[in-house]
Simulated assay, not measured.
Amino acid sequence: MTESTKHYSIWAASMVASLAAAFAAVGAVSASRAGADRMHCEIVASASRGIVTLEGRAEGAEALSGSYRFEVSGAGTQIRQGGPFGTAAGASATLGSVKLGGSGPYRATLEINANGETVQCAEWTGGAL
Rank of each mutant, 00 (worst) to 15 (best):
D37M: 07
R49S: 11
A88F: 08
L100Y: 12
V119H: 08
S46D: 10
G74K: 06
T118D: 13
N113A: 14
L19I: 05
K99N: 15
A58E: 04
P84H: 14
G96N: 05
V26Y: 11
E117N: 12
G102Q: 15
A89N: 02
G90F: 06
A93T: 03
R33E: 12
G82N: 04
I43M: 06
V44H: 11
A24G: 11
Y106M: 05
A17M: 05
T53E: 10
A88G: 09
S92K: 15
E55A: 13
E111T: 15
A45P: 07
L64D: 00
G76T: 02
A108L: 09
E55W: 08
R38T: 12
E117T: 10
L54N: 01
G86V: 05
T87E: 01
S32Y: 04
A20V: 07
A22R: 08
R69T: 07
R49K: 09
A28N: 10
R57P: 01
V98Q: 02
A28H: 09
V16W: 02
L95D: 05
A61E: 10
K99D: 15
Y106F: 15
S65T: 10
M15Y: 10
I112V: 15
E117W: 14
F23N: 12
F23R: 04
I51M: 09
V98P: 00
R38C: 06
A93K: 13
Q81L: 01
A75G: 05
H40F: 11
S14C: 09
G86E: 13
E111G: 15
A88Y: 05
E62C: 04
V119N: 14
T109A: 13
T77V: 15
E59R: 08
A63M: 02
S103Q: 15
L64S: 00
G96I: 03
G74I: 04
Q81A: 00
Y68S: 02
A93N: 07
S67E: 14
A13T: 01
A24C: 02
R57K: 10
T77Q: 11
A93R: 12
T94Q: 13
A34G: 05
A20T: 07
A28D: 13
Y106W: 14
